[in-house]
Lab assay of single mutants.
Amino acid sequence: KEQQNAFYEILHLPNLTEEQRNGFIQSLKDDPSVSKEILAEAKKLNDAQA
């Protein structure tokens, strides 16, 4: 469930490039146990690119 939530949120971050988004999603698939950390990174990058 946590992985699904992170997946959904990353898909809807407006400021990520397609490449960045795909990278985060691939990381989620590779290691779902760190989905919280991956989501935090994605949000940080999204904010930095706002």
Rank of each mutant, 00 (worst) to 15 (best):
K36W: 08
S33G: 10
N22C: 12
I38Q: 02
A50M: 08
E37C: 07
Q3T: 10
E37V: 11
K36Y: 12
E41V: 08
A6E: 15
L39D: 01
T17S: 05
D30F: 06
V34F: 12
Q49G: 05
Q26Y: 03
N5A: 07
D31L: 05
D31K: 13
I10P: 01
L45K: 04
L11G: 09
D30R: 07
L16K: 00
E9A: 04
K43R: 03
A42S: 03
S35Q: 09
E9R: 02
N46Q: 02
Q20G: 01
K43L: 06
L39F: 04
D47S: 14
I10D: 01
N15D: 10
K29R: 08
I10T: 02
T17N: 13
L45N: 03
P32F: 08
K29Q: 13
K43N: 13
Y8L: 14
Y8P: 04
F24M: 05
F7C: 08
K36H: 12
E18V: 10
R21P: 00
E9Y: 08
K36V: 11
Q4A: 12
D47W: 13
D30H: 12
N46V: 02
L39I: 12
A42D: 00
E2I: 10
K44Q: 13
R21D: 00
L28T: 03
N46C: 03
K29S: 05
L13H: 04
K36G: 12
Q3E: 15
L13N: 01
P32M: 14
Y8D: 15
K43C: 03
N22Y: 08
E37Q: 12
E9W: 07
N5K: 08
D31H: 15
G23I: 15
V34Q: 13
L45W: 06
K36Q: 08
S33Q: 15
F24K: 01
V34T: 13
G23Y: 11
G23M: 12
H12P: 01
K43Q: 04
F24V: 01
I38D: 00
Q4C: 08
Q4F: 11
V34D: 11
A40Q: 14
P32R: 06
P32C: 04
A42T: 00
Q49P: 04
A50Y: 06
E41L: 13
Q26I: 08
V34L: 10
L45G: 01
R21W: 02
K1W: 02
S35G: 05
L13C: 02
K36E: 10
A48V: 11
Q4W: 12
N5S: 11
D47G: 09
L28R: 00
E2L: 09
E18D: 10
Q4Y: 06
E18W: 09
N15P: 00
S27F: 08
E9G: 03
V34R: 13
E18M: 12
F24I: 03
R21T: 05
Q26R: 04
E41W: 07
S27V: 13
N5Q: 10
K1Y: 03
Q49F: 08
Q20C: 02
K29T: 15
L16Y: 00
A50G: 09
S27D: 10
I38W: 02
P32L: 12
T17G: 03
V34P: 03
I10M: 03
E9Q: 07
E18K: 09
E41Q: 12
E37D: 07
Q20L: 02
S35I: 12
I38N: 01
K29C: 06
L16V: 02
R21I: 08
Q26M: 15
E2G: 09
V34H: 13
K1P: 14
S35H: 15
N5D: 14
K43M: 07
S27H: 11
A42N: 00
K29V: 08
L39T: 07
N5L: 06
A48M: 10
S35M: 09
P32K: 08
A42R: 00
L39Q: 04
S27N: 13
E18Q: 07
E19N: 11
E9S: 03
L45S: 03
F24S: 01
E2S: 06
Q26K: 05
A6S: 07
P32S: 07
A48F: 11
A6H: 14
Q4K: 06
Q26L: 06
I10C: 02
H12Y: 14
G23V: 10
A42F: 00
K1M: 15
I10V: 11
K29N: 11
A6I: 08
Q20M: 03
V34Y: 13
N15G: 06
A40E: 15
N46S: 13
P14W: 04
E18N: 11
A50N: 11
N46D: 03
S35R: 05
Y8G: 10
K29Y: 15
Q3P: 14
K44T: 04
N46H: 03
L13I: 03
D31M: 09
D47Y: 06
P32T: 05
F7A: 07
K44V: 11
K36I: 15
E2M: 04
A40G: 07
P32Q: 06
F24E: 00
I38Y: 02
A50E: 13
E2C: 07
S27K: 06
L16E: 00
S33F: 12
L11R: 04
E37P: 05
L16Q: 00
S35P: 05
D47Q: 15
D31E: 09
S27T: 05
F7E: 15
L11E: 15
I25E: 02
N46T: 01
K29D: 06
E19M: 09
A42G: 02
K29H: 09
D31C: 03
